[in-house]
Structures are given as structure tokens and as C-alpha cells.
Design a protein around this nucleic acid. Structure first.
Lengths: 134, 134
DNA sequence: TGCCTTATTGACATTGATTCTCATAATCAA
DNA sequence: TTGATTATGAGAATCAATGTCAATAAGGCA
């Protein structure tokens, strides 16, 4: 664990959600000037491979990252507005989801000899504001 | 409906799955020489906005597209290998999924005043071959 | 049918996120 | 420390995707 890595991890674990690499880079310049954009990308990929952060592909042309907090209270998925790109986290239906996911994982792991490590659920649509325009 | 648009739609509806824009462009050159890459991108975005094709973000640096076939038999989601990128379609648990999705949509649409139009579920992990290497 | 307005196309340039390169600097075990 | 290994930062390079624009096609209407 080096200084830049700690800075990035600390920033992600305390900041608001869904930050792009550029946003993280810019935000860190204030507190840790001199940190390079390459390092930000490298570290984010490293943390994602380690399962410490989640890399989100939300369709706005850049990857976004969020700290993966443990346990039921941290577990969530996303509503994504296809018009303006706003992201809403929701935490409902944890138990029902878990039930389906467990069942699915068990069956699919066997059938396809696939080792499932993670899952994503997302809902696409129009947010309150964008609904009015269409 | 113009000729290039029909060519792209026809190609997508009959081809195998998960094609990138470049792959579609290259494949079409044989049958419809002269078609432009911009037109491929424009048409794919158009078809995606119309809900005729699905735009997939699978983490390999490019968007992939698949024809959205109607009904229970066409409905599926994906297992994605985070090492080699292979994509497996699965069609299991349609009813269980539908039940959860309906419940979720109803609650979230109200709570967040969000108009849900579509949903994705994906499982990430290691495929049979890549499992052995790690 | 012919005319006119509007939308689409294809070639090319441009953008912009991400990765690569490489010389320098930091890390860590012995 | 010391030497080998790994990480860093600056800039260049890559490459998917979009923008530009003149030429072409489509479709409505008299």
C-alpha cells in the first residue's frame, strides 16, 4: 500500500458515489498535488480486480467507481435515467433478490461450469424530470 | 426506413449475438459495400433508442448490440467472464425474475417517480477455462 | 410528375477516455 | 545499506465514438 493508493481508496470510501477517474483525479489534486492520472487509472483497476471497488458502466462514455461497502446496508443497485444519466441507488428487496441470485448462481454455476463472483441489477428508464419532457 | 438501416437491422436479427459496431460494419461491407461507419453507429443508436436492439456494456471497451427478440423465449441475461470476456446467455428463472422485477418496478416507480422501461441482470465471474488458471 | 423542404448518408476530422512507454523514484526483504 | 523489484508521473499513443459538411435521397404537396 503506497501513498497514492491510500489517497485514492480513502477518497472513494468517504466520497459520494459514482465518481469517474477524471473526477477522482481532479478532486485529489487539492489534497495530494502531483498525483498522476495514470496512477489513478492503474489504482482503480487494481482495486476493482481486488473486489474493493466496483467499476460501473453506465453508458455515459466513461467508467465510474464506487466503494464496495460490506453487508446488507451497503448492498444496492441502480436506477439509471437514459436521458440525463442521473443515477439513483436503491436498497429495496434485498431478501427477495438474494433468494433469486442464490438459486440462479447455484444452477448456472453447475450448468455452465462458471464461477460466479458478483452480480449486477439495473433498471433503465426516465427520471422524474425527464419523464415530463417526453 | 432506408436501405442502410434495413441492412443493419436485417444483419442483427439474423446474426449471432453481441456484435460490436466495427464487427457489424466489417460484416456488412461484403454484402453492402459503401456503407459508412458513421451510419452504422447512428443506426445502432437509433435502433437502441427505439427499443429494437439492446446496447450492451460488457467492459471490453466497446459497446455491443443484440437484437431484442420478443417474448419469453427471447428473454435472457448474461454471464460474463471477467478474464477472457466470453459471454454466455442464460434463460433460466424467467418466472422468478419476472416476479421480482414486477415487484421492484412497482415500488421504485412510485418511490422515485421513475418510469422504468427496461432492466438488466448480469453475473460476473470466471468461465470454465479461466477458472483453471487462477 | 416535378419541385422543394427536410432527413440521411459517407468520408473525414475530431474528441476524449483509457492505456502504453519509459525514465525516475519509492519500496522492501536480506 | 544494498540491490532487485515494483510503483509513479509525464507525455505519447490508441481507439471507440461523435461531429462536420457537402452530396444525395426521401417524402409531401401543388
Amino acid at each position: 500500500m503506497t501513498a497514492p493508493r491510500e489517497a485514492i481508496l480513502e477518497f472513494l470510501s468517504t466520497s459520494s458515489k459514482h465518481m469517474s477517474a477524471k473526477e477522482i483525479y481532479t478532486s485529489l489534486q487539492k489534497k495530494y498535488p502531483g498525483i498522476g492520472l495514470s496512477t489513478v487509472y492503474r489504482t482503480l483497476n487494481l482495486l476493482a480486480r481486488m473486489g474493493i471497488v466496483t467499476k460501473l458502466l453506465l453508458g455515459d462514455g466513461q467508467s465510474r467507481y464506487e466503494f464496495k461497502s460490506k453487508g446488507k446496508s451497503g448492498h444496492h443497485h441502480h436506477l439509471i435515467c437514459t436521458n440525463c444519466g442521473i443515477i439513483i441507488d436503491y436498497r429495496e428487496f434485498f431478501e427477495e433478490e438474494l433468494q433469486l441470485v442464490r438459486k440462479t448462481e447455484e444452477k448456472l454455476a453447475k450448468k455452465y461450469k462458471f464461477m460466479i463472483q458478483d452480480h449486477n441489477i439495473e433498471y433503465l428508464g426516465l427520471c422524474e424530470k425527464c419523464k415530463l419532457k417526453y
